[in-house]
Design a binder for these strands. Structure first.
Lengths: 235, 235
DNA sequence: CAAGCAAATCTTGTATACAAGAACAGCTAT
DNA sequence: ATAGCTGTTCTTGTATACAAGATTTGCTTG
């Protein structure tokens, strides 16, 4: 499939999985040949990728896969942490019964996460289920709109997480915390939610580990990225 | 000035001020003639406007200025309310001194808001200063990143506010609440912040008033807008 | 050999021609 | 009169040619 939407998903996925490494050049002509499509629709795709932060555009020079920006990661973590604490606390404080459908969906997601942990190469599937769990929580609170909004700026955080979760023992810890969260919601126990969610999202945000092992993927302030153009400037 | 950025600002402003009313048709050829530019760069501008929610794209049929979507408004208000409560409480709880520069900026913004209230046709200037005040609070907390993120989905909320603030007496109330917020931050009094911010952002969100007076600008669920394509679909 | 200039060759940005679908007008047939 | 077809005329979507800037190559010159 080589529709515009398909190409967008494909490129986004290759960048997320680091198949396309930060710093890689995305030439419009090269990509248009690869996908057998003209430059015009392909540029639309690149525009979208740039908007989401996956690539940096250097006018008249080229498009580079962006380096993971830890500052952006921290901002998104703070945003999600603040929002999800409030959302989950509200869910756990409601007096009206929760929709059974949503609760069952959450449970099933956790069961499927349990399965993936056993398997080899579980990370990709686990990550998708992780997203599904959190999105389902947003949905239960009627806040999918905000989940989608956050996803629009997910390029840096998503890659950051993938690098972090290469350690397999983390998966079990994350799943355990998911169960804690769900139990709190079902059991109407809003007490410990703040600290659970806080810890869950910050998951020892040790830039040290990344700097040690994946420095070549990170956005170094010293680098010459000052001339890049970001699409989100309004004045 | 007819640069791409200029055209974008121009159109965005015309939609915000309702000079371009919801439902108006934005034809690519018409706009390209108006701005003396070809369709290719103009389409980039329309893509951006669509992404921000200012227009709805009906493939192969046309682009319409979007109707104000109250659901989207409510979501943004919740997001800002939750975030700003946390941000302002943190500012008011810090033990380290606040940067003088930032505090002075906030004070000056409020003084200038005071001035605009006196004048006739104050709304536009007042609104810009309102944004400046809140953005300065985000800046003080090192969260401009999140302010900018929210602005990307501001099309509906911004127009909603403009309609609401046509009542002049509201301006004074808003300014008074701004002073309350700033005093809390300076005085390190995090006590009442939750309720102040909550009330400040929800400002009697009576859809009733809008339905009464501006129904023709609102997105009616019954309307035939089901076929529109929104740019933010990933999966 | 090195510095500097110039031209060739990259890149993306823009204009324009063409394709394809949707809406509409107007005809015809019943 | 109205349902249905058909061609025209809108619209946006795509391909391609051209423009303009940035970079690199390579020659020239000291």
């Amino acid at each position: 499939m080589t529709s515009k939407a398909g190409i967008l998903r494909q490129l986004r996925n290759e960048i997320l999985t680091l198949e396309l490494k930060p710093g890689s050049i995305l030439s419009e002509t090269a990509l248009s040949e690869r996908f057998q499509i003209s430059r015009t629709p392909l540029r639309d795709v690149l525009k979208q990728l740039a908007h989401e932060g996956y690539i940096d555009v250097y006018p008249k020079r080229g498009n580079l896969v962006s380096y993971i920006d830890l500052e952006s990661v921290e901002q998104i973590i703070y945003l999600r942490s603040t929002l999800e604490k409030d959302i989950i606390k509200n869910l756990a404080s409601h007096t009206s019964p929760l929709p059974l459908r949503g609760v069952l969906e959450l449970k099933e997601i956790l069961d499927r996460q349990e399965e993936t942990i056993q398997q080899e190469h579980a990370h990709e599937a686990f990550l998708q289920l992780d997203d599904a769990f959190h999105k389902a929580l947003f949905a239960l609170a009627g806040r999918v709109f905000l989940w989608d909004l956050i996803q629009q700026s997910n390029a840096h955080y998503a890659r950051y997480r993938r690098l972090h979760l290469l350690k397999k023992e983390k998966l079990k810890a994350i799943l355990a915390e998911h169960r804690l969260i769900l139990d709190s919601v079902i059991g109407r126990d809003a007490e410990k939610i703040d600290e659970i969610v806080e810890h869950h999202l910050h998951e020892d945000i040790n830039a040290a580990y990344l700097l040690e092992n994946f420095a070549e993927y990170l956005n170094m302030p010293s680098f010459d990225s000052s001339e890049s153009v970001n699409a989100n400037s309004k004045s």
